[in-house]
Computed example of a mutant assay.
Amino acid sequence: MALITISGYPCSGKTHRAREIAEFLEKKMQETDGPKQKVVMVSEHDLGVERKAYDNSRAEKPARGTLFAALQRQLSTNNIVIVDAPNYIKGFRYQIYCAAREIKVRVATVFVVSTPDECRTRNAAREGAERYSDDTLDNMIQRYEEPNSMVRWDAPLFTVLADDTLSTSNGSESTLGEQIWRAVTAGDVKPPNGAALSQAKAPTDALFNLENTTLGIVTNIMAEQAASGALGGPVILTLTPAVPDAPKSRTGGLKIQITLPQRNITLSELQRLKRQFVTIQKKAITLGTTERGAVDWTEGGVADRFGTFLEEHLKG
């Protein structure tokens, strides 16, 4: 249903705010008619990510991987997932955003604001594994990339100050909690980008059809040209399907109409154009395609595309 990314300095009060938001949303869910969604917290603390993981980049990378894998497992149209972590690098927030778009759930970012001195004071009051080293804390504060409402992966952005409350006793719809509620229940669902879309793969016989159909067209053009004396103009080529049980057209055979130039076309010229066309089509076969609608890899589909290709390159 939605993904809420909590972001802020270390020790800025993110966990407190994340729990507060979770409680508010659960309460709103009970007060609202309709399907009940589950509010899920994905927290570094619950995943066992230690503070010392941020002491160096080698340890930090797998820690972020653990967090990302956990939120991916929870992302669904039935959950509101709250990610409680520093999320201080915009590249990681973008990665989270793309994961949410792929599942087609709403997104929101909550920026918990606190001064560096306040964070240092809170960190100093912690003990043992709950405490960041002073150098690590200062480094994370210095490297922090603040969320920006103008970029799509941080929007909509809600900034929470130390003295902000999520709701008021009179239930005002302008409160921060209500704004977050509307964003995760009624906001726009952004579609996946092209990189996240599943690649449509070609059938297993696509390459066979490609090679045999193009070869058949080249052979038939040479035969037609010899029979007509290279008069050119529109001609209809009748091909024998390479696969005996392949679907045939209504006329009883595989036919293609092509307009030939009024000049002699050499075999080497046709073979060169065939190689160019096959090379282009092979890329779509091996890498997949995200074109609108499925690409027709049948003999008829290949013949139509190759015929158009030849008409465009044989002009003159």
Rank of each mutant, 00 (worst) to 15 (best):
A99G: 08
D154N: 15
T115V: 09
E146Q: 13
E118A: 08
P116C: 06
Q95T: 12
L197T: 06
T165F: 04
E102L: 09
F158K: 10
Q199Y: 06
A129C: 01
F158H: 09
A124C: 04
A200E: 15
Y132C: 01
C119M: 14
F158N: 06
V151M: 12
P116S: 04
C98K: 08
K190D: 06
M150Q: 10
I103Q: 14
F92Y: 08
Y144A: 00
V184L: 08
E130L: 06
I103P: 00
N148G: 01
G187V: 12
K104H: 10
I141S: 00
S169D: 12
P147T: 07
T175Q: 07
S114Q: 11
T168P: 01
Y132P: 02
R120M: 11
T165E: 13
Q95V: 03
A125F: 06
A196M: 11
T115S: 13
M140D: 03
V160W: 15
A125Y: 07
A162Q: 14
A124T: 10
D135W: 09
D154L: 11
G187E: 15
N148Q: 10
E118W: 05
S198D: 14
A125V: 04
F92M: 12
T136W: 04
R152K: 13
R120A: 10
W181S: 09
V110W: 14
R182M: 12
T175H: 02
A196P: 01
D134P: 03
R93D: 09
Q199V: 15
A155D: 14
